[in-house]
Amino acid sequence: MAENTAATSATSNTAPTSSQGEFYLRRATADDLDAVMEIIEQARAVLARDGIPQWQAGRPNRGEIAQSIAKKVTYVYMSPDGRVAGTASLVPGPDPNYNKLYAGKWIEPDEEYVVIHRVAANADFKGMHMGSRLLDALIEKARKLGYPQVRIDTHDLNGRMRHLISKAGFTYVGKILIHGDSYNSRRAYQLLL
């Protein structure tokens, strides 16, 4: 989650402006790739500065984000003036990384779910609670899509993201391993809708 980085201007020329002057969530398009990558790089820098190894091995990279956009699972949170204020992916399960939970158990293990990945907020909107607003918008989108639960994970050291996840109403349920690698363990959370 990147809310404390140097300001930049992630924009999208194709975004409509909300007539009510409100922020809104929409699916990302190929035209959003540069803005999304700029925000991802902001987040990567904040994580590095804070000594958090998450996102430091070159992932997510431009190719992965482009593929995620093509699969229609990446979203952008748009400001009323058409700037990308945040980004995340909302990926239908099952996610292989969530198959085995360590030191805990899923609340509703057999229910269909969607996973929130790659949450990042544009530093231009620092102080406006973009992380919380983005998570709330994603949860509402999952609810409208009919998912009975949402899952999310973050690195143990990412206290900023852990706070946002808890504030959004998620329950900590245990740990997962990313690609089965014990070096890449993450705290897993679940929210029943």
Rank of each mutant, 00 (worst) to 15 (best):
M78F: 07
K167E: 11
Q42S: 08
A10H: 05
A57P: 00
A6C: 10
A28I: 03
E41T: 04
D136V: 10
E41Q: 14
L191E: 04
L157H: 03
H179Y: 11
A168L: 05
Y113N: 07
E3Y: 07
H179E: 15
I165V: 14
I65M: 15
L192R: 05
Q67K: 09
D181R: 09
A123I: 05
L47W: 00
D136I: 10
D156P: 13
Q56D: 08
N99F: 13
D50T: 08
N13I: 11
A103K: 12
D153Q: 00
G131W: 00
N158M: 01
L145G: 07
A137K: 08
T5Y: 14
W106H: 06
S166P: 01
V114H: 04
V46D: 02
E64A: 15
L33H: 06
S185P: 00
T14R: 08
V76G: 14
T14K: 14
V36C: 09
I65C: 11
A88D: 04
M1H: 07
V36S: 04
V150T: 12
A10D: 05
R162Q: 13
F125W: 08
D81C: 09
A15V: 11
I165K: 02
T5A: 15
H163N: 13
F23I: 03
T17G: 11
D181Y: 03
T5S: 15
F23Y: 15
K167P: 02
Y172C: 08
T29V: 09
V119P: 03
D32I: 04
L193Q: 11
G169H: 05
V173K: 06
R133M: 14
N13H: 13
M161N: 04
L177K: 14
E38K: 09
L177G: 02
I107A: 11
Y113W: 05
N158I: 00
A2S: 15
G180T: 03
S132N: 12
Y102S: 12
V84F: 09
D32E: 02
R186T: 03
P80R: 08
A168V: 02
F125D: 04
Q67Y: 06
A120Q: 01
P53T: 14
D95A: 06
V73Y: 08
N4T: 13
P60D: 01
R44Y: 02
K105C: 10
I165G: 13
